[in-house]
Design a protein around this nucleic acid. Structure first.
Length: 827
DNA sequence: GCAAGGTC
């Protein structure tokens, strides 16, 4: 038997299709897809299926001095048990094996890991094939010309694994232990995350140190044939054109000169046409950046792209490549979109171009093609709104890369008024070119009329504006990812995760991300004692070392040992400052949690966590002072800069994904609840008949509201109510539940008719059931609703369902598909 | 429980 191993299931399936000429079938072994035809089996891994770690005697952080990790063994253990088991079973039956993982460094290492697992079972020959994209021609070529595993290249990857683990774990444990932060709130450090955090912290330092400077700008409205256009005053500053006037008296003088005359004389008119080239194909970074201008975070953009990829609508979303492969036939792909409602007309127009040549970016890599649509077009109803918007972006980007350039006409007019110069720059889109199919990049025009040299233009108004220089702007997520790429930090697959990690660790907050006090302290400590790990030099050095290993000029052991020696020198410096660092980190942690003074004792009120894991506000004077305030039960609290004047307390925001909301001042919220009275609306359905329990609208001190039984805590029946908006009880009545209908009047003009609170809650439960189902891979909202109609209205119901029954009940769903979902639920 | 890199 011949065994082929790929990096992921998707690649295994497509390679099986190509090599078997469509004759392959799939079955599942330990929950892993195995594709088979004739004497061949193809199995896909899930990236790395083994991971590096220290032996278990190093597990307890308090038992091990962090410095001991430097010389500890580094072992490799299976992390994907099912896949490893399947691979080994298949290896036992194999007479030969072929590694077909991705064509990049990490792919070589993943291939070598598979090779070692195979070697535990058999001595059968193992070869390696390399292809840049999974197309018929490339795959056939690669399998016709197999090569050997490049063990040096794999060793380069292993050096990275070891160095990252040793530095990351030793320094993370050192900082966490010195600040006595264990458990969930440890203080992490790493080769990628720490320099990324330093980028954010450095920018924040610039902002804090920024000293704004005053300047003035002067504008004049010029008239031509009854319509006006704006021109700006400028002067010659040592051979350069300058608009900002830094001295107020100078600005006043210029303003006086400009207002002393009624007209300006045109001294020069310059026209030129500029070609505006279409954008280059999407790599991951460019895609994230385009999605971010549509309002998606990096993480959101990537998970939607992932979904579109697994359902087969777009190509692999993790790529550095910006050059389409030779065998992508642009016109054939355009053809697929002809007649496809939304895109048909644009595709036809593009096909009418005399020449269809795609743009090319600077990066050409071997691993995957740039992100483009596959040509399989989803029905719009199968995608959520977000998915459709991202899909359309990818389609239109592909369209743009094969579209013609746009042409702009620029018109620059310079005029003299009272001895002062004025200028106006106009631009007009002459040939829209790619803008016709790619509406995302700006194509805004600025009208300046045709004028001639020597022409007199009336001045209708002169304005002087006092301005101030602005501090540099914070990095947005997509700008941050671009900067990481420029500095070589992280990879196309990990950059967005690194940023998420900084949020999770409590290092950054908000969007654009702002560093917390803790982040400032961690970066300061690292700069002082472990500058290497917080600078992008560490990655640059590692890249150079990895290249040397890959070229056979150095060995894995030499490089790893040298790195370990360097880390030992860092620990020599750290040793004496352990307490000082710990105290600084602890103070910073406290600063991030401080809301304001305790009204009872004057100490700080802090955001704390109860033993049950819920958050509340507690006094730092505990146990002498036991003053507390509740917080809402959903989400992670974040202390905002906003401030309540009355209580001198910071506002709190609760982070809970889509349900994130601002709680405000916890004292105000608690007082509001104390002042409000319960409003009885009807009998309690649980205990009304037996104990005369009644339902009432209640306000809790945590800021939430609900309809609950007046006999609470004897009866805990309750229904949720929205957090915001005035609740009013209407005359309308629900006969079924004996309750009045409610209306929620938020700030918007359109009040929400919530209706009977019981009916509303039942509808809400049905709706969330559909959303739960949609979270499964490959399930669209239409299918989820159909499942709901057929009685599969929750994940639990789906897990229990008989696949054949579901398949007959719901049109368009196969029993195999249901089994896949069930497998996914089990996993 | 630590990192970063794959992948879902």
């Amino acid at each position: 038997m011949r065994l082929i191993i790929t990096e992921k299931d998707n690649a295994a399936r497509r390679i099986a299709e190509i090599l078997s000429e469509g004759g392959a079938s799939a079955n599942r072994q330990n929950g892993v897809n195995v594709y088979r035809w004739g004497d061949t089996r193809v199995v896909g891994l899930s990236g790395h299926v083994v991971g590096v770690d220290f032996p278990k005697e190093y597990n307890d952080w308090r038992d091990v001095e962090p410095v001991e990790l430097i010389d500890a063994d580094v072992t490799k253990e299976p992390t994907q048990e099912n896949i490893v088991a399947t691979l080994k079973q298949l290896a036992r039956e194999a007479d030969e094996a072929t590694i077909a993982t991705d064509y990049d460094r990490e792919g070589e290492l993943i291939g070598k890991e598979a090779y070692e697992l195979i070697r535990e079972e058999t001595d059968a020959p193992v070869d390696r094939v390399r292809f840049s994209s999974i197309t018929e021609r490339e795959v056939r070529d690669a399998f016709a010309n197999p090569d050997d595993i490049d063990f040096d290249l794999a060793a380069a990857g292993e050096a990275r694994q070891i160095i990252d683990l040793v530095w990351g774990a030793a320094l993370t444990r050192f900082l966490s232990l010195s600040a006595r932060q264990l458990g969930d709130d440890f203080i992490s450090v790493g080769r990628v995350q720490s320099p990324t955090l330093k980028l954010i912290v450095d920018r924040e330092r610039e902002i804090q140190a920024f000293d704004p400077e005053d300047y003035w700008e002067i504008f004049a409205d010029l008239q031509k044939n009854g319509s006006g256009f704006e021109a700006q005053y400028f002067y010659d500053d040592d051979g350069k054109e300058a608009e900002r006037v830094w001295v107020e008296d100078d600005a006043d003088d210029a303003y006086a000169d400009l207002t002393s005359v009624d007209a300006a004389t045109v001294t020069s008119v310059r026209r030129r046409t500029r070609t505006d080239s279409p954008p280059t194909p999407f790599n991951t970074t460019a895609f994230i950046s385009a999605a971010s201008s549509l309002g998606y975070s990096a993480q959101q953009a990537m998970s939607i792209a992932e979904e579109l990829y697994t359902t087969g609508y777009i190509t692999y979303p993790r790529t550095d490549n910006t050059v389409y492969p030779d065998d992508l036939e642009e016109d054939a792909l355009l053809d697929e979109f002809v007649g496809a409602g939304h895109f048909g007309e644009d595709a036809e127009a593009l096909l009418e171009q005399a020449d269809i040549t795609a743009t090319e970016g600077d990066e050409e890599t071997t691993d995957h093609p740039p992100i483009h649509p596959t040509g399989e077009i989803p029905p719009k109803v199968d995608l959520s709104d977000d998915e459709w918007e991202i899909y359309e972006l990818v389609v239109r980007r592909f369209f743009a890369t094969v579209a013609e350039a746009a042409t702009w006409e620029h018109l620059r007019v310079v005029a003299d008024a009272g001895g002062r110069s004025l200028k106006a720059n106009g631009k007009r889109l002459v040939e829209p070119g790619y803008h016709e199919v790619y509406p995302y990049s700006s194509a805004s025009e600025n009208h300046v009329p045709d004028v001639e040299e020597g022409e007199e233009l009336a001045i209708s108004e002169v304005r002087m504006e006092a301005k101030q220089t602005q501090p540099p702007r914070r990095y947005g997520q997509s700008r941050l990812i671009q900067t990481m790429e420029d500095k070589g930090l992280g990879t196309k697959s990990t950059r967005h995760n690194s940023i998420e990690k900084l949020y999770d660790r409590g290092y950054i907050e908000g969007d654009p991300p702002r560093p917390t006090t803790l982040a400032m302290a961690v970066v300061e400590a690292a700069e002082e004692f472990a500058d290497h790990v917080v600078s992008d030099e560490m990655t640059a050095q590692l890249e150079a070392d990895m290249t040397a290993i890959a070229n056979g000029e150095a060995t894995l052991d030499e490089v790893a040992d040298e790195s370990r020696e360097m880390l030992k020198r860092v620990f020599d410096e750290l040793r004496d400052s352990r307490e000082e660092i710990g105290e600084h980190l602890q103070e910073s942690l406290k600063a991030d949690k401080t809301l304001g003074p305790c009204p009872k004792c004057g100490e700080d009120m802090l955001v704390r966590r109860s033993r049950q894991g819920s958050y509340f506000v507690g006094c730092d004077g505990f146990p002498e002072c036991r003053n507390t305030l509740p917080l809402p039960s959903t989400g992670e609290p974040q202390v905002l800069e906003d401030h309540c004047e009355e209580h001198d307390m910071h506002h709190v925001k609760m982070l809970a994904g889509r349900d994130t909301f601002v709680h405000g001042c916890p004292r105000c919220e608690a007082e509001k609840a104390d002042e409000s009275e319960d409003e009885v609306i009807g009998p309690c359905p649980e205990c009304g008949s037996e104990h005369d329990g009644e339902l009432a609208i209640k306000h809790l001190r945590s800021g939430s509201r609900l309809v609950g039984c007046t006999r609470y805590p004897e009866c805990d029946y309750s229904l949720p109510l929205p957090r915001n908006g005035d609740i009013s009880v209407t005359e309308a009545f629900c006969e079924e539940h004996d309750l009045p209908e409610l209306v929620i009047d938020a700030d918007s003009d359109d009040p929400w008719e919530l209706g009977c609170p019981i009916c509303n809650y039942e509808e809400y439960q049905a709706r969330t059931a559909v959303e739960d189902l949609e979270d499964l891979s490959g399930i669209g909202s239409a299918t989820a609703e159909k499942l709901g109609d057929a009685g599969v209205d929750s994940l639990a119901a789906l897990r229990e369902a008989d696949p054949d029954v579901v398949a007959t009940e719901v049109q368009g769903v196969s029993a195999t598909q249901v089994r896949d979902w069930q497998d996914e639920l089990e996993a």
